[in-house]
Simulated scan of single mutants.
Amino acid sequence: MFSDLTDDILSYFLGIQHTKIEELNVEFPRVEMRESDMIFKCITKEGNTIAVHIEFQSDNDREMPYRMLRYAVEIMEKHELVPYQVVVYIGENNLNMADGVNFDFGEENFLKYRYKIIDVGEIKFNEITQTNYYELFTLLPLMDKERRKKEKELYLKECVEMIKKIPLEQERKREVAARARILAELVYEEEIIDKTFAEVIKMLNLEKSATFRRLIEEGRKEGIEEGRKEGEKEAKITIAKELLKEGMDIAKVAKVTGLSIDEIKKLLN
C-alpha cells in the first residue's frame, strides 16, 4: 500500500537525502510474531549507512513506545545498523501516543529512547500540493484535519481535483488515486467517497489499478471471513440455548460449544 511512497517520505517528512535504498526483509519472531511495515537500508549523501524504519498507525496504541523499542533492538541485533524510526499516524482521532520511553532511576541508571511521530492530520493541504512529492498526494484525504472536518465533502473534492492534475504518467496517477480512495475510508463515509471519486474512477480507469484490485479483493475476503466467523458464533449460541433448555450444566455447555462460561451465563438473562 505504501511502498511507492518511500522516496517521498524519506525526502520530505524525514529530510533524509539518500543515494541508495535497499529494502530489508526483517521479521520479528520475538516481537508479536509480526513484520514491521517498512525497513530500508539507506546510504545518505553524507555516506552514513542507517536503517530507516517506518510504521503506519491508524489508531492510538499506548504500547507503541515499547513495540518501537523492541523493533529498534531487533534491527540493531540483526543488521548492526543504527535505526532511524518514525511512526506515521493516519488515524481519525487526535494523536495520543508517546514518542518514546524515559526511565530515570538516578545516578547512571536510566533509559532515554525516542522516535519521530508524524501526524498526517496536522499537515496542511497546501504544504503538500505546492511540492512535487506527488506520491504523497495519496495522503491528502487524511490531511488538514481542521479544514477537512469543516469543509467535509468539499475538501475531499479538492483532493481529487489535485490528484487529477498531477503531471505523472497515467499508470502512476492511477495508483495514487487508488490509494487515496482507499485511505479516504478512514475518515469519510462510503457514499461520499463513491460520489466524489466517481469521475476520477471513470477518467483513470481505476479498476485497472493493481493496488485497487488487490485491496478490494482482500477486503472482500476479510468480509467473507468475518461473516463466516459470525455465522459460526450464532450457530454455537443457538446450540447453547437448546442445551440450557434441556438442563445441561453451564460448564458442559461451554465444553460442547466452545463458548466461554461468561457468554453462556448471559444467555440465561
Rank of each mutant, 00 (worst) to 15 (best):
K150A: 14
R181A: 12
E161N: 15
Y133T: 08
L140G: 07
V187D: 01
Y66C: 00
F105T: 09
Y89V: 05
K164S: 06
L142K: 10
E161Y: 10
M76W: 06
G47P: 03
Y115R: 04
I118R: 09
P65T: 01
V187N: 05
K124M: 12
M143E: 02
E151G: 10
Y133A: 04
V73C: 00
A177M: 04
E92W: 09
E77A: 13
T131P: 02
E46Q: 12
C42D: 00
R148S: 02
F56V: 02
I50T: 10
A72P: 01
A98M: 08
T129K: 14
F40G: 00
E55K: 02
E171N: 11
N132Q: 13
E80N: 15
Q130T: 15
L142H: 08
H53F: 00
P83M: 02
Q170R: 15
K116H: 12
Y155R: 07
V87M: 00
Y66E: 01
Y115P: 01
E158K: 14
Y115W: 02
I90L: 11
K149N: 12
V73G: 00
R172H: 05
E46M: 06
P167M: 08
E74G: 00
H53M: 01
T44D: 03
K124S: 09
G121I: 03
F125W: 07
L142T: 06
K78P: 02
E108D: 13
L183Q: 05
V160I: 11
A180N: 00
